[in-house]
């Protein structure tokens, strides 16, 4: 029961992006097409799950006073690994995501979960929490990416669906990101009002 709860918490109820409003910068910046959004979600998932795992594993030997710098070193280790891996194996994606890959280190979701969850919970729960939170983050990011790519360039994951000239270019420009996420949140609010 508790394990299942740890896994599903991040999906909707405490969705990091749409509910807790953290980790917003990459969501807006790299959601101009679905492939970038998916790549960013995977990079964040890698760092979040592994840093939750390590923080939970070492939580008993970490002195309370200096836990934050230690978390940051753990997180930045994994960020450096994914940074160099992507640079080597997916150079195109890396160029598209730009400075947002090294900036995963200051993504509030990761330090937030390390401090609020992994530091206090066993390894298995922490890994599941990392998986759930990554899924919630990815869900929000890919949804926004799909909407923006479809409306802004008429394609989906790179497949051209209709004539790009008929698409609203504004959706893949910066204002489109703000509009999409604003409407998505308003829709979610309305949906919740109806259900409750």
């Amino acid at each position: 029961m508790s394990l299942k709860n740890d896994l599903t918490l991040g999906l909707l109820k405490e969705n990091p992006v749409l509910r807790l409003m953290i980790g917003l910068c990459p969501v807006l910046a790299v959601s101009n097409n679905a492939i970038n959004a998916l790549g960013m979600s995977l990079a964040v998932a890698f760092v979040l799950i592994l840093s939750n795992f390590v923080v939970a594993a070492i939580r008993k030997v970490v002195p309370d006073d200096i836990r934050i710098p230690i978390f940051i070193i753990v997180i930045s280790t994994f960020v450096t690994i994914i940074d160099y891996t992507m640079q080597a194996f997916t150079p195109e994606l890396y160029a598209a995501l730009g400075v947002f890959v090294p900036l995963i280190v200051v993504n509030c979701i990761i330090l937030g979960r390390a401090e609020a969850f992994a530091y206090r919970a066993p390894v298995l729960n922490s890994v599941l929490d990392g998986v759930g939170m990554s899924l919630g983050f990815g869900l929000a990011l890919v949804t926004i990416g799909v909407v923006r790519e479809l409306l802004g360039s008429g394609s989906l994951f790179g497949w051209q669906l209709f004539n790009g000239a008929a698409a609203a270019t504004i959706m893949i420009l910066p204002p489109g990101a703000f509009i999409t996420i604003g409407l998505l949140m308003a829709g979610l609010n309305k949906l919740e009002n109806k259900v409750l």
Binding site: G182, M185, A186, N189, N193
Partner: peptide
């Protein structure tokens, strides 16, 4: 402001228009 737009949603829409101006 309509009820389900209050708070963050309307703030995002406002930011969209500011971003449009900066574009």
């Amino acid at each position: 402001i309509p009820k389900w737009f209050q708070g963050y949603p309307i703030a995002f829409i406002t930011a969209a228009f500011m971003s449009l101006a900066f574009l």
